[in-house]
């Protein structure tokens, strides 16, 4: 029986592993964290239809029934290729495989790098991921002092489309996430005033535009302008400065809470992993794919495939598609060997 190693137990890794196991391969998933499900397991509800993310993660996890098998808290720290077979090392243990799928996903942009926004310095500047955590825990956002915020600003493109922090690319999912979260805040705290500071709104997916329209109808204010800086006022309120570029006016406002829509960055550690296989990151730091149109999971090295957010920002749908695509490509590869 041919063996496939899947590195990463997020949505991509789990989906690909399940598909490959159904095709009759022996599949092992290596997850560096103590639980499978990746970032998605940390979210509360998903765009566009606000389904609970736990449903998605639980269904994916239910495939783990021995084949595919999963090793949790197992970081692969070395991969070598020898005569078309791969040897993966973790904790001095060696695993063998005939094909490898890289599904290491992404990391959230470290918001403290955008220092002028005050993350980690001011009390009530949080990230979109932390807001999801608050929804999960309380069903509504809370300020550091435990109060509900009455005035919030969502800052789009934090660590996306920003050359100054070496993230020149669009992270794709943050626009719609902000719109979704703004609606959720409005529903949880109806009297709250909400502002979204955006560059462009990229509502490309099914249902996204509807969500945007719903947000406007619910009275959420959209201001086209990037945040220039934030400072802290008395009572831990935050003063934000921007320019309303549609009316060419500088704008200043104080809010109770600032939510930074952090983008997707290449996962740390993926670099060393792919370097060991003779692969290079693309110019944005993600795993390089050889054919973006006809074979978006193939890498330069035979037998090594990559899928999901490790190849660039993806939403769940994209990742599931890529996972299935990878399963088919791995099947073709193993049969032609």
């Amino acid at each position: 029986m041919k063996k496939v190693a899947v590195i990463g137990g997020g949505v991509t890794g789990l989906e690909a592993a399940s598909q490959l196991a159904q095709m009759g391969y022996t599949v092992t998933v290596f997850e560096k964290n103590s639980a499978a499900g990746g970032h998605v397991s940390k979210w509360d509800r998903l765009f566009p239809n606000r389904r609970h993310s736990i449903e998605v993660v639980n269904e994916l996890k239910s495939y783990l029934n021995g084949n595919p098998a999963i090793y949790l808290s197992t970081a692969i720290n070395k991969v070598t290729k020898k005569d078309n077979r791969f040897q993966l090392e973790a904790y001095n243990q060696v695993f063998e495989a005939d094909a490898v799928l890289i599904a290491t996903g992404f990391e959230l942009f470290p918001a403290e790098r955008k220092e002028e926004y005050g993350y980690g310095i001011y009390d009530n500047v949080i990230t979109s991921a932390e807001l999801e955590g608050m929804f999960k825990e309380n069903g509504y956002p809370v300020k550091r002092n435990g109060d509900k915020p009455k005035r919030l600003a969502f800052i789009h493109c934090v660590g996306s489309r920003d050359e100054k922090v070496k993230r020149p690319y669009c992270s794709k999912v943050c626009c719609v996430t902000a719109v979704k979260q703004a609606i959720e805040v409005k529903e949880a705290i109806p009297e709250a005033e909400i502002f979204c500071l955006y560059m462009d709104l990229r509502m490309f997916g099914p249902g996204y535009e509807d969500l945007y329209k719903e947000a406007q109808q619910k009275g959420i204010n959209f201001i086209r302008g990037r945040l220039s800086e934030a400072s802290e006022l008395e009572g831990s309120r935050v003063l934000i400065k921007t320019e309303d570029t549609l009316s060419s006016k500088p704008l200043k406002m104080s809010v109770d809470m600032v939510v930074l829509m952090v983008g997707m960055s290449p996962a740390q550690g993926t670099d060393e992993l792919i370097a060991a296989l003779g692969l290079q990151p693309n110019k944005d730091g993600f795993v390089e794919i050889t054919d973006y149109h006809l074979n978006p999971v193939k890498t330069k090295v035979d037998g090594v495939f990559a899928a999901g957010a490790c190849t660039g920002p993806n939403n769940i749908t994209d990742s599931i598609n890529a996972a299935r695509s990878a399963a088919v490509e791995i099947h073709k590869y193993l049969n032609n060997k």
Partner: peptide, 9 residues
């Protein structure tokens, strides 16, 4: 200075 709030602080 305002772009590096920790310096001000």
């Amino acid at each position: 200075g305002h772009l590096t709030p920790s310096v001000i602080k």
